[in-house]
Design a protein around this nucleic acid. Structure first.
Length: 934
DNA sequence: GACATCACG
DNA sequence: GACGTACGTGATGTCC
């Protein structure tokens, strides 16, 4: 302080602000400001770190000048040099974004200079300031551990890793890079950086780069004399990739001449101003920190209001027992307003809806329950009617003690749509869909089911009963006794109010308690990103898709049903004739007895229940010799198509919309895949011509077409990447027929001499690998001897050794950790991997498959999350997802644009979180119906 | 409600 | 050396 002119004897501290923020963000649980729920954890950590830094720099070596330097925006001049620079970076977590401006304010509140500059990285500003300070004869300490800054070290410039409290000087840099600071950029240019996506020279890492630079002196000399290098591979790389290496150097070279609009003198160290700092800390509601700082500054600590009822926090236990919980009925506007006030104070609320049924497209809203703190919840009944016991005639008149539905919704809508209030639910997609039908767009949300899925996928189910028992030690009130079952079952609007309150309020209470348990755990399990990028944002997307539905033509289905019925009747007569007696063709048990006992066919195998097995495989074998099993196969196919599709689909056509609305379970499949239910639209026939025609009944509205985009071979591409198989990667890069290429490689057959049969075998092996191949399984699939199948597998491993190591490593990882992971960090638990016997074998194959299937599932989830923004404003709706396919309904004049945009999103869906070595491609189709579009 | 079967990726 | 086996789903009909 005092003398502000920077010069000899001055000491400048430059703090890498982004590093502080990210360290703070990841070190702390996701704290929120009590009064409004604003995420604040990173700001809290940042302030603590900044405070600790100031505290620790009061000694004799105290800086005379200091500044915190931030990045501004994500686009810099380096992106103009190379558009993929830092393209690997995952988008900033949702709950961090609003905290960024607050960290700037915090820096200013501590009275420390705070600098950033459009189009430049923080590193460039740091470099420029360090150069200026050095020239002025002062000393510089850069507080960061970023290796990109190491090029600046020397001549009075040092780095300090604040976390490890370790100083890095010239020798420290040499330790890290094998060269002194003035050659660091040369080494970085060669070695590249996968984190920042600096390409460098392929196959050259830091060690080799340092070796080369030390031998030739500098990068330019090395590149000029690259021809002298003995190792042929290295020589070629350096010659061929010269441009790329020189580009890399420009990317890593920091700019010491950024156009700053301030001088070093402005950065002089100043004492914090209590009148600025304390109000800021109070606004953030940092109680401990503001008290500590107030003490140090010798002033009164600011009073920060406790928004929660103080008596509840004083000595009552955090979570009261369930049997002491306070559950009330809300039956007028005053009472509801009281709850709304509390919600606004907290910034969050657990919400649950009660309805007349499980189908969100049809069910009516019966009541709403709310909970803001454990043990205190309410239920707002809206359309309860007299129950049968109260009124034998089942009057439709509403019972007393309820608010008008419109009034309650009008009051709640601003809360449910308020971006500052988190709405917590268990399976929020259900409630969001119900509310959407009443004109309320619930957002933002948290979902305890999805939190559990992200943390415990594969360990157990994620229904409320399971979670409550497991994590709260409480068995929820069962719904059965309230609603009854079978013919006498009633809907929730007939449940007496008092019972409804205990049941419904408890659900909201449980949800809130689960949320409080899960929220901090999410972070500790390192699945916050999975939850925030792959689970939660999918909720509104799926809700919209489900509400869109797909138009299904009843007449087409009905005609097909009739045709199937006729054919089946004919076949049934033939079958009875051949059997010599009538029996139920649909009964595998009776069929088995006819085939193997009465007709005396050899080779009948009995399953574990003692009945003969009569599956397709068995009947197909028999069909070569006998007519009856052949007819049964035909009959079964028709029976399946009729009962599961042409008949059942008709019953799913919504009378209001004329469309079929499936429901996707987000947390159903262990691998991260979605599952479609009621009806399942992910298994509509396609493999046989007869079945495929069912897709003709899935149609577009007049003036529209159905557009389908599907990933080509996504799982094999992911396998090629994960197991790192150069031959497979190359084949995909060259656009080859992957199964033909595998066949050629395995059986030494040139591609132009490939036969369909050899290709078919290779295809089976490729799929087998994805499924955790076994000789037995492959043998059965290809109907070849087991020894031959084993030979194929051995040969496959020989040709693609990476597959073997992937399988071994995955198995070892699962045994060690109890789970495996996708490329995006999704965990799939494999609790049975250490079991004994065949169960371990199952778990082992599932563990091999899960990262592949799961990564593919993550990729399409990412595409789906981004899709609404990509097709915004276009006359298009996303309707269905079938694992690797997305189906849209598009107005005729928008088709080309939609295909372009959707393909772009799908093909780049892995970026920037993961850079795949293999390109993803999506094929498209269009037509009046799904058969034509696919 | 378990089981067998079969539709999909 | 022996387990049993391809991975992941959901819907339907039979039978107890």
């Amino acid at each position: 302080m005092g003398d502000t002119t920077f010069g000899k004897g001055c000491h400048l501290h430059l703090i890498d602000g982004s590093a502080f923020i990210f360290r703070a963000y990841h070190a702390l649980p996701p704290l929120t400001r009590k009064s409004d729920g604003l995420p604040i954890g990173a700001v809290a950590g940042f302030c603590n770190m900044l405070h600790r830094y100031i505290e620790g720099n009061n000694g004799p070596d105290a800086p005379t000048h200091a500044a915190v330097i931030f990045d501004k925006g994500s686009h810099t001049f380096r992106n103009d040099l190379y558009d993929l620079y830092k393209a690997n970076r995952e988008a900033m977590p949702e709950d961090l974004r609003p905290q960024m401006p607050l960290t700037r304010r915090a820096t200013e509140a501590f009275n420390v200079a705070c600098k950033e500059l459009e189009n430049y990285e923080a590193d460039d500003i740091i470099a420029t300031l360090a150069c200026q300070a050095r020239e002025a004869g002062g000393r510089v300490t850069i507080i960061s551990s970023d290796k990109d800054l190491m090029q600046l070290v020397g001549d009075g410039v040092e780095m300090l890793d604040a976390m490890k409290n370790k100083r890095i000087d010239r020798d420290g840099v040499f330790e890290k890079f094998g060269v002194f600071p003035d050659r660091v950029v040369d080494v970085q240019a060669l070695a590249g950086d996968s984190v920042d996506n600096v390409p460098g020279a392929p196959g050259i890492g830091i060690k080799t780069a340092a070796l080369l630079i030390n031998e030739y002196g500098d990068l330019e000399t090395l590149l000029d004399r690259a021809g002298d290098i003995k190792q042929p591979k290295r020589r070629e790389t350096l010659i061929e990739k010269r441009d790329q290496i020189e580009l890399s150097k420009r990317l890593v070279q920091l700019d010491c001449a950024t156009p700053l609009d301030f001088g070093l003198d402005e950065l002089d160290v100043r004492k914090p101003d209590a009148e600025v700092l304390l109000p800021f800390l109070a606004e953030m509601e940092f109680r401990t920190l503001s008290r500590r700082i107030a003490d140090q500054l010798g002033v009164e600590a600011p009073v920060i209001a406790e928004p929660a009822a103080p008596e509840a926090e004083a000595d009552a236990p955090e979570a009261p027992a369930f049997d002491e919980a306070d559950y009330s009925r809300v039956s007028d506007a005053d009472a509801l307003q009281g709850w709304i006030d509390q919600i606004r104070e907290r910034g969050w609320v657990a919400v649950d809806t009660e309805t007349t049924g499980l189908n969100e497209m049809i069910a009516d809203l019966v009541g709403i329950s709310l909970c803001v703190e454990p043990g205190r919840a309410c239920y707002i009944p809206l359309i309860h009617k007299a129950s049968a016991t109260e009124d034998l005639f089942g009057s439709d008149e509403l019972v007393e003690g309820q608010m008008p539905l419109d009034e309650a919704l009008a009051m709640l809508k601003p809360v449910l749509e308020d971006p500052a209030i988190i709405k917590i639910g268990q399976n929020m997609k259900y409630d969001a869909k119900i509310f959407a039908r009443y004109g309320v767009d619930v957002a933002p949300i948290d979902d305890t089911m999805l939190m559990s899925y992200a943390m415990h996928g594969g360990e157990h189910g994620h229904g409320m009963d399971t979670l409550s028992e497991r994590y709260l030690g409480h068995t929820p009130i069962p719904i059965k006794p309230l609603l009854g079952s079978g013919k006498s079952a009633i809907t929730f609007d007939r449940v007496p109010l008092e019972k409804a309150v205990s049941y419904a309020a408890e659900d909201a209470d449980i949800t809130l308690r689960l949320w409080q348990v899960f929220k901090p755990q999410l972070h500790r399990s390192k699945v916050t990103t999975v939850y925030e990028t792959l689970e939660r944002p999918l909720v509104p997307v799926l809700a919209q898709m489900e509400r869109n539905g797909i138009k299904v033509d009843r007449d087409t289905l009905s005609r097909m049903s009739n045709a199937f019925a006729q054919k089946m009747a004919g076949l049934e007569a033939e079958i009875h004739e051949l059997a010599g007696e009538t029996f139920n063709v649909g009964s595998p048990k009776q069929l088995g007895e006819i085939l193997f006992d009465k007709m005396g066919i050899e080779g009948g195998k009995r399953g574990k229940t003692g009945a003969y097995a009569t599956g397709v495989d068995v009947l197909e074998d028999l069909a070569t010799e006998h007519d009856l099993p052949a007819r049964v196969l035909d009959w079964r196919q028709l029976s399946k198509l009729k009962s599961t599709y042409t008949d059942a689909l008709q019953t799913h056509i919504n009378p209001d919309t004329g469309r079929v609305h499936t429901s996707y379970s987000i947390a159903g499949a262990n691998t991260g895949r979605l599952a479609s239910t009621d009806p399942n639209l992910q298994n509509i026939p396609i493999r046989t011509e007869e079945g495929r025609r069912i897709r003709e009944a899935f149609v577009a509205e007049p003036g529209h077409v159905l557009v389908s985009l599907d990933y080509s071979q996504i799982e094999l591409r992911i396998l090629a990447h994960i197991a790192n198989i150069p031959a497979l990667k190359q084949a995909f890069a060259d656009g080859l027929d992957i199964h033909a290429m595998t066949a050629s490689e395995m059986f030494d057959v040139p591609l132009d001499e490939m036969t369909p049969d050899i290709r078919r075998k290779a295809k089976a092996i490729n799929f087998g690998v994805i499924y955790g191949i076994s000789g037995f399984g492959l043998a059965r699939n290809l109907r070849i001897p087991r020894s031959e199948a084993q030979g194929f597998i051995d040969r496959y491993f020989e040709r693609f050794p990476g597959i073997r190591s992937y399988m071994d490593e995955t198995k070892a990882f699962a045994k060690e950790n109890g789970y495996v992971q996708t490329l995006f960090g999704r965990k799939i638990h494999t609790p049975e991997i250490n079991a004994k016997g065949p169960r371990a074998s199952f778990a082992y194959r599932a563990a091999i498959n899960a990262p592949i299937q799961g990564t593919a599932a993550d990729v399409i989830r990412r595409a789906m999350v981004r899709m609404p923004a990509a097709i915004e404003g276009l006359p298009a709706r996303m309707l269905l997802q079938v694992h690797d396919e997305l189906l849209f309904e598009v107005a005729e004049d928008g088709v080309d644009t939609v295909i372009d945009r959707a393909r772009d999103v799908m093909e780049n869906a892995a970026d920037p979180a993961v850079h795949l070595d293999v390109k993803l491609t999506a094929d498209s189709g269009q037509g009046a119906n799904w058969a034509e579009a696919h």
